[in-house]
Nucleic acid binder design. Structure first.
Lengths: 327, 327
DNA sequence: CCGACCCCGGACAACGTTGTCATAGTCGCC
DNA sequence: GGCGACTATGACAACGTTGTCCGGGGTCGG
């Protein structure tokens, strides 16, 4: 900046005035300054500006599990969109479901003085955020609640979703329904299991412990589980899967088989409608989740200091003809 | 920081020494300082630190088209991964294929003094980056080359891919092959079209202008194009689609039809193998693209000043049984 | 013709941090 | 006991920017 000032033959402060569109600069002077800026390719240092002004850094942080998962990338896009409307940039990071990584990312973002944090919790311990939150950084949790701090949270209706899934399958005559969910220490996995259990009770189809498999993490384990649950003397006839990854593992493990059991998957996914048979899903909108959380975050950044809110977004069952009795 | 110093009864510099693990601090003093830090929830301001040290900001910028597109989200994840290994954070933004947005994002990132920029170009004008690059910010272009600056670029073998697609279809007896590509002002779309044309020549199947549709942008326009190209007196019997979005539009427009024409899609996509019939694709690895570009960027950040490189990653045809004559 | 006012420009401090250098205190050794 | 060496700590400047305040000159009215 001092280079620009020297070249334009003015003081450094005048340059500042020009780049900030402050009044009180003679047009000819401004012209000279702009020419110098152009010639030198000057771009003001936003960090220094923010430091000096004590103002916001114009960034928000987004910590999620894996941006490569379509569910989270849709969410990311929605957050980006809201941030853009509010003139903020987004720092992203994937925790890979590791609490240490989540913490590392979140604290790193805080050290960069983000104006707000959006977090998909990987673990249950979030005490490390207390100082930051007390210092005024708003934090909104997405998709899962924080373990041990009270803060805004945006969730989807996990329990209602699996209740509905079971209801749907029971209505099509299924009595022995299996559930494959993610690791039980993941909030959503646990909630969906609870909903499944509740759904079984409500639909009066009986809840069978041996038909529940939590935490299969690749195609192989899923195939194994399928053999166990759909073989034997009392095989299941229908399956509820706890998230999009597991649904895909199941589909892949069953590829080429014509006798695919009735299936309802949590999370919608592209092309679910084009498979044969199409896959019935519990759909919820990743963008809506991101948008709701970002809106909430910006409201906090704008000074909203009402008590922490918990927003639960609805899910809806999208029947695609795979709920019928096929086995 | 001065609060911490006051509370611990030391000077601000001593606090700095403690948070930087500098030697020469009495253990008891360090203890007091740490206690004060803990009590006040102090976290040092990275912006100020970087400003003072004149060192890097520890961030890189990634401008892409749409993070919600699985292709780009895979790329993002790979970039994140490399950045993490190098201790950097990633700022992301989606340009939505709008040159103005790309420029805005890139310049914003530069103003934040990112250590490097990864850009999926939306337009052809990148002169705006010249000052930044001259100032030492390395820039690597991904997936498409820059319009008017020389810089490192990582591409996939678009031309080779569509040549191969045509070869595959011709080998299965197709003579009238159609091509649906993205808007022709997009580099990859244009390259793939060139490859398609070249492939037709090489396979000696004839290139039919009326079978080429560029720029259909939703399911409706695609359906329209399908009717035109596969109807009429001399219908096509096979189709090459220019990217994953168009492939999906085609599949959706053809849903329920049993006489799907032979299809080869550019870009692999999840579940392509589980559709019936499965979809043959020109596969290339989004993560590999992201990784290669990030590696190149970090090499530049580490001082590599060899002439700009152009890396072309291979693609491969994944036959999935839809190349055969079905119509 | 002179004073008041306005407009433009500049000097200086400060944001939070760290590098440089100085200084007070301590210890060991002759 | 004095001196050098070393240790622990602090004062100060500086990074690039902007807010505050002040001054110099021009204009206009009395």
């Amino acid at each position: 900046m001092s280079d620009v000032a020297r070249l334009a033959g003015v003081s450094i402060k005048t340059v500042s005035r020009v780049v900030n569109d402050e009044p009180g600069v003679h047009p000819a002077t401004a012209e000279r300054v702009l020419a110098a800026i152009d010639q030198l390719g000057f771009r003001r240092n936003l960090s220094a500006r923010n430091l000096r002004r004590g103002s916001s850094t114009g960034t928000i942080g987004l910590v999620l599990e894996d941006v490569a998962n379509p569910f989270y990338s849709g969410m990311t896009r929605a957050v980006e969109e809201i941030a853009r409307l509010r003139g903020r940039q987004v720092l992203t990071g994937s925790s890979d479901e590791q609490p240490a990584r989540e913490r590392e990312l979140a604290l790193e973002f805080c050290a960069r003085r983000v104006d707000g944090l959006l977090i998909v919790p990987a673990g249950l311990q979030h005490g490390y955020l207390t100082p930051e939150m007390r210092a005024g950084t708003p934090v909104v949790f997405l998709d899962r609640p924080a373990g041990d701090v009270v803060a805004d949270t945006v969730l989807v209706d996990n329990i209602g979703g699996t209740i509905e899934a079971v209801r749907h399958l029971a209505a099509h005559g299924h009595r022995r329904i299996a559930f494959f969910g993610d690791a039980p220490d993941i909030f959503t996995a646990n909630e969906r299991l609870r909903g499944f259990r509740e759904g079984c009770v409500r639909a009066d189809v009986g809840y069978h412990e041996e038909l529940v498999v939590m935490g299969p993490h690749d195609e192989h384990t899923v195939a194994e589980a399928l053999r166990r649950v759909f073989g034997g003397r009392q095989p299941a006839t229908a399956l509820v899967t706890g998230n999009n990854r597991i649904t895909v593992y199941v589909l892949r493990a069953l590829a080429g088989r014509t006798d695919r059991p009735a299936l309802v998957g949590f999370d919608d996914f592209e092309l679910a409608d084009l498979l044969s048979p199409p896959v019935t899903v519990i759909a919820h909108d990743a963008s809506a989740l991101g948008k709701a959380a970002a809106d909430l975050l910006f409201a906090r950044m704008d000074g909203d200091s009402s008590p922490p809110r918990r927003v639960v977004l609805p899910v809806r069952l999208v029947p695609r003809g795979s709920g019928e009795v096929t086995a």
